[in-house]
Simulated assay, not measured.
Amino acid sequence: MECSCLTCAACGWRTLCNPAEGAARLRLVGLLRRAGDPDPAIVGELLREAAPRMTCPSCKSIGLTAKSAAAEDEELDDWQAAILCEACRKPIPTERLEALPSVKRCATCQKRAEAGHTDDEPDFCPRCGALMELRVSRGSGLTRYRLFCTGVPACRST
C-alpha cells in the first residue's frame, strides 16, 4: 500500500493520503470514475501528475506537489538533521558546517552581521521573553508606535 504526501508550496500545508483518499481527491478533479477500486500504484502516479492542478484547502492556491511517502520521509529526515541559521531560520549548507563546525549563521546572514546590519533581529520582552510587536498606540505624534509584548497572557510590558 503506497501512500502519497501532498504539499502546498505557498502556505506549507501538508497531508498524507492513503490510496483511498488519493482516489477521492482524483475523483474531485475528474480523473477517476466513481465505481471500482483503482490500483494503488496508479493512484500514486495520477496524484503526482494531477497535483499541480489541485487546489490547496488551506490557502486556496492552485498547484500542489505530490511525492511518495517514502521520499517525503527521507526529505524530512534530511531537514531535521539540518542545522538552521539563527537569523533567517534556513538550513546552513553542509559544506559550511564541515569547514566551520561551530557556526550559527549561514554565509549571507554572517556577512550582514559583520557589515553591521542587525535590523532583522527581533526584540524580546525583558520580563517574559516573548516576542515584542510594533503597534500603533493610543497617543499621537512621534510616540505613536510602541513595542508591545505578544506573550500569552501578555505581561503588559511596553
Rank of each mutant, 00 (worst) to 15 (best):
R127N: 09
G116I: 03
A99S: 15
S102H: 15
E121V: 14
L46E: 10
G63N: 06
K111A: 12
A66K: 04
A69P: 01
R127C: 07
D73K: 15
P52Y: 07
L47P: 09
E74Q: 15
K104Q: 15
V29L: 05
R33F: 07
G44E: 14
C88G: 06
A69V: 05
T94W: 02
E74L: 14
E72H: 06
A41Q: 13
D78E: 15
K104V: 15
C56D: 03
P57D: 05
L131T: 09
I83C: 00
A66R: 02
L97D: 01
I62L: 09
E121H: 11
T94Y: 04
A107R: 15
T108I: 14
D120G: 09
S140T: 07
R96W: 06
E72S: 12
D123K: 12
G63Q: 06
M132S: 03
I92A: 13
A81E: 04
S140C: 06
G44L: 10
L76D: 12
E49W: 04
G30F: 02
E45F: 10
A35V: 04
D73L: 11
R27W: 06
L84V: 01
F124D: 05
K90D: 06
C88R: 04
I92P: 08
K90L: 13
I62R: 11
T108W: 11
P126C: 03
V136S: 10
L26E: 01
R96E: 12
K60L: 15
A71Q: 10
A66V: 02
C109P: 08
P122M: 05
A66T: 05
A24I: 00
L31A: 12
L31P: 00
S58C: 14
E75D: 12
